[in-house]
Amino acid sequence: MAEDPPAPQIVVPLRHPWTWLASALVVLIAGLVLFSVATNPAFEWPVVAQYMLDGQILLGLSRTLELTVAAMLIGLAIGTVLAIMRLSRNPLLSTLSWLYIWFFRSVPVLVQLIFWYNFAALYSTITLRVPFGPVLYAANTNTLITPLFAALAGLGLAQAAYTAEVIRAGIVSVPHGQTRAAKALGMRPMPIFRRIVFPQAMRVIIPPVGNEVISMVKSTSLVSVIALAELLYTAQLIYSRTYETIPLLIVASLWYLIIVSVLTAGQHVLERRYRQR
């Protein structure tokens, strides 16, 4: 005799009334904040709209992007050299690298930027000469160390210290046996690094470097203290003239939000690609 299938039971999940209440409260508060932001005339939304695509602002924006790319490239190039030095068997090289990383990670980037900007106070002229011989090149420090130079030095050299650690971690993640195998095949150190170690290290290196690019976009705003007209300083220049402080800070913030959001999306794509295989 076949049994009837059991009657369907009604499953009542545990209810969480407090969670619902808390959520409702948060939505309510968020709504109130949004309403106040949208309607408070002090935000001057029409001014924000007017400046979003202003020529001067866009110039500052492109300067911010250029600084990000240039500082990251400097950081990657010097960082790679530092990482290789750090892993060198030569104790002098690895100690020098350690000292560099220690120093540039310990002093705040803002302080470094101001230091570079005031370099002329330390050395008023910079000369390149053959020891005890003729002078090859001489320049006034103030003409050589422009705000752009100081910005790239401050951001790039500090970034190198951070990138060096990331690259070092990438390099040591490649099993040493592969280096031995490549040596045993007659490959020389440079090709072994270029063809065997580096491509595999990249899988470990790329995701964190993506994060550093995002941080760098925001760090470039520090450069405003040395009067380099990137996004924030451009906004400051305008509001010091027009006194529309809040709307221009909002313009700058919106642009930072947009760039960082785009980069974060790109970062997700990259991470997914590098996690496969």
Binding site: P175, Q178, R180, A181, P199, Q200
Partner: peptide, 9 residues
Amino acid sequence: FQQFNLFQH
């Protein structure tokens, strides 16, 4: 080698 040491990439 015991661990083969093929280039993984």
